Amino acid sequence: MKVVAIGAVVTAIIQSSSATVGIILALGLQGLINLETILALVLGANIGTTITPIISALNSNYEAKRTAMFCFL
C-alpha cells in the first residue's frame, strides 16, 4: 500500500503519469525494482493522475467537484 502511495505522490508532483511510468520502467529494466513493485507504482501513478482535476475543482461549483470525484473513483 505504501508503494502505491509513493507512485501517486510522485505523479502528483510531476503532473504526468506517462513520465512516472517511464521512470518506473527504466528502473525496472535496470533491475533496481522488481515486478511487484513496478505494478504497485504504476497503479499509484494512475491514481496520482486524478490529483489535477481535484485541484482544479477546489474553488469550483458543486458539479465540478462531483466530476472530479468521479474521475478519482
Rank of each mutant, 00 (worst) to 15 (best):
M1E: 09
V3L: 12
V4H: 01
A5C: 07
A5K: 12
A5E: 11
I6F: 10
A8E: 05
A8V: 04
V9P: 01
V10R: 01
V10I: 15
V10T: 09
T11H: 04
A12C: 11
A12N: 08
A12G: 15
I13N: 03
I14V: 15
Q15Y: 04
S16A: 12
S17H: 04
S17I: 06
S18T: 15
T20D: 01
V21S: 02
V21W: 00
I24V: 15
I24H: 00
A26K: 08
L27Y: 07
L27K: 06
L29D: 11
Q30D: 10
Q30F: 14
G31F: 05
G31M: 10
L32P: 01
L32Q: 14
L32G: 06
L32F: 13
I33P: 01
I33G: 04
I33Q: 06
N34L: 10
L35C: 02
L35Q: 14
L35F: 14
E36N: 14
E36A: 14
E36H: 12
T37Q: 12
I38Y: 00
I38P: 00
I38V: 15
L39M: 11
L41R: 02
L43N: 02
L43S: 11
G44E: 05
N46Q: 08
N46R: 03
I47Q: 02
G48P: 04
T49D: 13
T50V: 10
T50K: 07
T52P: 03
P53Y: 04
P53T: 06
I54D: 02
I54F: 11
S56A: 15
A57G: 03
L58H: 02
S60N: 09
S60R: 13
N61H: 08
E63W: 09
R66S: 10
T67R: 12
A68R: 06
A68Q: 03
F70D: 10
C71A: 15
F72C: 12
